[in-house]
């Protein structure tokens, strides 16, 4: 995930402003419009599933796809599983990063 796409600074700033816009608009929405109309429960539930679905969709290919091929034996997947195990067992916010990077480096060295 390094390299291509980053040579054009103008494109990057455009992306950053676009992301900022679609982040600030939902945040400010009801506060600015001043509407007290409650969101229908059905919509509220759909909105709750969106971040989980989106995060998983972004992160899963990072773990499972290496060089455009689905691969179950790659250091990133191993390190990702370590992160999930550590984060579900302990509350310390630093630990997943230490364990994740440590196991990634170890597995890359072994591979």
């Amino acid at each position: 995930m390094t390299g291509p796409g980053f040579d054009d600074s103008w494109t990057i700033w455009l992306s950053l402003f676009a992301i900022a816009l679609v982040t600030t608009l939902p945040r400010a929405s009801f506060i600015v419009l001043g509407s007290r109309v409650p969101l229908p429960p059905r919509i509220q539930r759909a909105l709750r599933y969106a971040p989980a679905a989106a995060l998983a969709a972004v992160v899963a290919p990072d773990l499972l796809v290496a060089n455009d091929v689905v691969s179950l034996l790659n250091p990133r997947l191993g390190a990702g599983l370590v992160v999930l195990a550590v984060a579900s067992r302990w509350r310390n916010p630093f630990l997943p990063f230490i364990a994740g990077m440590g196991s990634l480096w170890a597995l890359q060295y072994l591979a």
Partner: peptide, 29 residues
């Protein structure tokens, strides 16, 4: 961004990640 994905896809992803703010905004407005 790093993969050079098209802008509309970056926007759609950011929007999906941020839709929860609509609920917060409505709750606190």
């Amino acid at each position: 961004i790093a993969a050079g994905a098209p802008l509309w896809l970056i926007i759609a992803t950011a929007l999906a990640l941020n839709l929860r703010f609509l609920i917060f905004s409505a709750g606190i407005a």
